[in-house]
């Protein structure tokens, strides 16, 4: 084993240069040239200021905005420098309490789609299900003085189908939908 130490050292150095510097460096250069928007985080700019990323959820509490899912990322949720889930197990009393509170906070009685009351794995889920969006249309419309139909039409417009028709689930990007709502008002 000890006679192999020098080759091992040289191999480690070589691989560090090739796969640790050249490979990520070349990929960075290519991505920045070919897909600059994606490579830099799909950032959204309004009035010259970055207001978020199309892929990263953010908190919305106002009555006039669609609300995202509960988030366990960071202390206040949607901390995009501290991603993570609640990691509460199925028999967790804390989980049940949190879900109960979220239901009261959303002001919903009766059945609720699972995603609206549960925290995502990343804590940064940018989406809610179309059913969860539908549940919120009446509240948003009332707060904004818009017609139910007008808001519902926007929700439909911002509902993305499954990828290739069968992969994953249909979804609504909360940030993009809320930005669209703000544009209607202006």
């Amino acid at each position: 084993m000890w006679t192999q130490m020098m080759p091992a050292l040289r191999m480690t150095l070589l691989l560090t240069v090739l796969t640790g510097l050249i490979y990520p460096g070349a990929v960075t250069a290519l991505c920045q040239a070919l897909f600059p928007a994606q490579a830099n985080g799909s950032l959204i700019v309004r009035n010259g200021k970055v207001i978020g990323s199309a892929l990263i959820g953010q908190n919305f509490a106002g009555e006039g905005y669609f609300h995202p899912r509960p988030s366990a990322a960071g202390a206040d949720g949607y901390d995009a420098a501290a991603s993570g889930g609640s990691n509460l197990g199925p028999t967790s009393r804390k989980l049940m309490e949190r879900v109960k509170q979220a239901k009261v906070a959303e002001g919903i009685e009766g059945p609720v789609p699972a995603d609206l009351l549960t925290a995502s794995g990343s804590g940064l889920d940018p989406h809610i299900s179309p059913e969860s969006a539908e549940l919120q249309i009446a509240r948003v419309a009332k707060a904004r003085g818009m017609s139910f139909q007008a808001v519902a039409a926007l929700v439909r417009q911002y509902t993305e189908d499954r990828d290739l028709g069968f992969l994953g689930e249909a979804r609504v990007n909360v940030l993009l939908l809320n930005l669209a709502l703000d544009e209607v008002r202006q």
């Binding site: 899912r69 889930g85 609640s86 990691n87 509460l88 199925p90 028999t91 989980l95 049940m96 879900v99 109960k100 239901k103 009685e109 009766g110 059945p111 609720v112 789609p113 699972a114 995603d115 009351l117 549960t118 925290a119 995502s120 794995g121 990343s122 889920d125 989406h127 809610i128 299900s129 059913e131 992969l167 994953g168 689930e169 979804r171």
Partner: peptide, 24 residues
């Protein structure tokens, strides 16, 4: 079943992302 008693429908989404859903 405990979440179902609270009115949550559609399977276990705690810790899952909407875009992937339960199957994926």
């Amino acid at each position: 079943p405990e979440l179902a008693r609270l009115g949550v429908v559609g399977g276990n989404m705690e810790g899952k992302e909407v875009r992937f859903g339960i199957a994926a």
